[in-house]
Simulated scan of single mutants.
Amino acid sequence: MTERYAEKIETALKSFITDHPGTLTREQAISTILENWFASHGYLPPQQEGLRPEELDASNDD
């Protein structure tokens, strides 16, 4: 992995942690990202927790 690529990943990871206050550690953030990616690509069953607050908008109202 190139240094520039690693820097971009680290910046994105820090942004993710900032945007998800319940994520306390770097390892938790990486785990959450991987779990979401694996679930959205069919490698894990989808979570049944519902939507995160940042995913809610008027189109979600039933």
Results as ranks from 00 to 15, higher is better:
residue 16 F to R: 06
residue 57 D to P: 02
residue 17 I to L: 09
residue 3 E to A: 13
residue 14 K to L: 09
residue 6 A to D: 13
residue 45 P to I: 01
residue 46 P to E: 11
residue 52 R to P: 00
residue 1 M to C: 07
residue 45 P to M: 02
residue 12 A to F: 07
residue 1 M to P: 10
residue 4 R to Y: 08
residue 2 T to F: 08
residue 21 P to T: 11
residue 4 R to A: 14
residue 20 H to C: 09
residue 42 G to D: 06
residue 3 E to L: 12
residue 33 I to W: 12
residue 32 T to I: 11
residue 59 S to H: 04
residue 45 P to K: 04
residue 22 G to P: 01
residue 31 S to K: 14
residue 25 T to W: 01
residue 4 R to F: 07
residue 26 R to A: 02
residue 60 N to V: 02
residue 37 W to V: 12
residue 15 S to E: 14
residue 54 E to Q: 11
residue 27 E to T: 13
residue 33 I to Q: 06
residue 62 D to I: 05
residue 13 L to N: 03
residue 59 S to A: 06
residue 18 T to M: 12
residue 10 E to T: 12
residue 7 E to M: 11
residue 10 E to D: 15
residue 48 Q to F: 05
residue 13 L to A: 01
residue 4 R to D: 12
residue 3 E to I: 09
residue 46 P to W: 00
residue 12 A to C: 09
residue 55 E to S: 01
residue 27 E to H: 07
residue 56 L to D: 00
residue 50 G to M: 03
residue 12 A to Q: 11
residue 37 W to N: 08
residue 47 Q to E: 14
residue 40 S to V: 03
residue 7 E to F: 08
residue 59 S to C: 01
residue 33 I to P: 10
residue 25 T to R: 03
residue 1 M to D: 14
residue 31 S to R: 13
residue 39 A to C: 10
residue 44 L to F: 15
residue 38 F to K: 10
residue 31 S to N: 13
residue 39 A to V: 02
residue 4 R to I: 04
residue 19 D to F: 02
residue 40 S to H: 10
residue 56 L to K: 05
residue 22 G to F: 04
residue 39 A to K: 11
residue 42 G to R: 05
residue 39 A to T: 07
residue 19 D to E: 13
residue 21 P to K: 09
residue 26 R to W: 01
residue 14 K to T: 05
residue 32 T to R: 15
residue 35 E to L: 11
residue 59 S to G: 00
residue 40 S to C: 07
residue 23 T to Y: 03
residue 27 E to A: 13
residue 48 Q to V: 08
residue 22 G to K: 12
residue 20 H to F: 14
residue 21 P to W: 00
residue 24 L to Q: 15
residue 30 I to T: 07
residue 14 K to R: 11
residue 56 L to M: 08
residue 21 P to R: 10
residue 52 R to N: 06
residue 35 E to S: 14
residue 13 L to P: 03
residue 32 T to L: 13
residue 9 I to E: 15
residue 55 E to P: 01
residue 18 T to C: 06
residue 60 N to I: 00
residue 24 L to N: 15
residue 43 Y to R: 00
residue 23 T to I: 15
residue 31 S to V: 03
residue 56 L to T: 04
residue 48 Q to A: 10
residue 50 G to F: 03
residue 36 N to E: 07
residue 25 T to P: 05
residue 41 H to M: 05
residue 57 D to R: 04
residue 25 T to F: 00
residue 54 E to S: 10
residue 27 E to Y: 03
residue 33 I to A: 15
residue 11 T to Q: 10
residue 1 M to F: 09
residue 10 E to N: 12
residue 57 D to G: 08
residue 29 A to V: 01
residue 13 L to K: 04
residue 48 Q to N: 14
residue 39 A to W: 09
residue 48 Q to D: 15
residue 60 N to M: 03
residue 43 Y to F: 14
residue 42 G to M: 07
residue 38 F to S: 11
residue 44 L to H: 13
residue 17 I to N: 02
residue 11 T to P: 00
residue 35 E to N: 14
residue 30 I to W: 04
residue 6 A to H: 04
residue 58 A to P: 00
residue 9 I to F: 10
residue 15 S to R: 09
residue 62 D to W: 12
residue 38 F to E: 12
residue 58 A to D: 06
residue 26 R to V: 02
residue 28 Q to A: 15
residue 42 G to N: 07
residue 24 L to M: 11
residue 27 E to V: 08
residue 10 E to G: 10
residue 50 G to R: 05
